[in-house]
């Protein structure tokens, strides 16, 4: 996937979504306005409306106001760049690259998140993405709880032509996960992706269940899961931070997938999440089809916000 291609598709998809945001930014910034308190407040409003969270926005604007005071920002263009840079700073962290490589055996991805955020769909997209890279992929249906969740993953498996390991509905998810690991070893799979039931992060017993799934997997494949992908819905507001924190406490999260960026929601809360928890965003979801997954790039993300 070429960079321009990605960029233009992302922009195209995001365009719909960013209209409001972008238009406002342009109005504010291209109109050659003076940098004054009114302008700063309007910009603040835009960021708050992106769900970034008041605390983070205030942090950014404290810094921006300081720069203004120190006369470091000559015009609105410089102001815009300064805000972008500050957001981007928060989005960058010592990133561990997600290679999907495990020289010792299958690379295991455990996908977690609250109900309805797009876990199963993201798994399908991810499988599609990996297949295109020539990987041998297998899916594991460890959401044994939600009605027809296994069917849902199986249908994707058929569409993608990747095997799906499953048990009966309402069976023990760790048992499925275990079997999944075993099957992956046997069949010489490159990447196994384990789907789990949606669970609210505040449910202690369900968080314990996740820990157990994790433990069981690592018994079969050392160090598994190699990636714990937390799926977050861009439509979610401040609660996404609580989700990230509690999932991270239960089973250290190593990456985030941010879905539903094809809507009008901006998913600004990831800025706060990445900044606070130092967990990288790996992918974004921009639709319901298997092609609608993109690698996340902080600079492109911020760029797309402001263009």
């Amino acid at each position: 996937m070429g960079k321009t291609n990605f960029f233009s598709r992302l922009k195209e998809k995001m365009n719909k979504t960013r209209q409001g945001f972008v238009r406002q930014m342009d109005e504010l910034l291209l109109g050659k306005r003076k940098i004054d308190e009114e302008l700063l407040e309007e910009l603040e409003e835009i960021l708050v409306m992106s769900d970034m969270g008041v605390a983070t926005v205030e942090e950014i604007f404290d810094e921006v106001r300081n720069k203004v005071k120190r006369h470091e920002l000559q015009d609105t263009e410089a102001l815009k760049d300064a805000i972008k840079a500050l957001i981007q700073e928060k989005l960058s962290q010592p990133s561990t690259e997600l290679t999907f490589e495990n020289p010792e055996g299958p690379f295991v991805v455990l996908v977690v998140g609250v109900n309805g955020v797009g876990k199963t769909t993201t798994i399908a997209k991810l499988a599609h993405f990996l297949k295109a890279k020539g990987k041998k992929v297998m899916l594991v249906a460890a959401d044994t709880f939600r009605a027809a969740a296994i069917d849902q993953l199986e249908i994707w498996g058929k569409r993608l032509d990747v095997p799906v390991i499953k048990h009966n509905p309402n069976s023990d998810p760790s048992a499925v996960a275990y079997d999944g690991m075993e099957a992956a070893l046997k069949r010489d799979i490159d990447v196994v992706i384990v789907d789990t039931a949606g669970r609210l992060h505040t449910k202690v017993n369900l968080m314990e269940e996740l820990k157990k799934i994790r433990r069981v997997m690592s018994k079969k494949i050392p160090n598994a899961p190699h990636e714990v992908l937390l799926v977050l819905d861009a439509t979610t507001g401040q609660n996404a931070l609580s989700q990230a924190k509690l999932f991270n406490e239960a089973t250290p999260v190593t990456g985030i997938a941010l879905t539903k960026l094809d809507g009008t929601a901006k998913g600004g809360i990831v800025v706060s999440i990445v900044n606070e928890l130092q967990i990288p965003v790996r992918f974004i979801g921009i639709g319901e089809k298997m092609e609608d997954l993109r690698p996340f790039d902080p600079s492109e993300f911020v760029e797309a916000l402001f263009e």
């Binding site: 708050v48 409306m49 992106s50 769900d51 609250v114 309805g116 819905d233 439509t235 979610t236 507001g237 401040q238 609660n239 996404a240 809507g263 009008t264 929601a265 901006k266 809360i269």
Partner: peptide
């Protein structure tokens, strides 16, 4: 509607 919805709730 999801009670966790953020600012976008108005648009939706």
């Amino acid at each position: 509607a999801d009670s966790m919805t953020g600012q976008d709730a108005v648009n939706i």
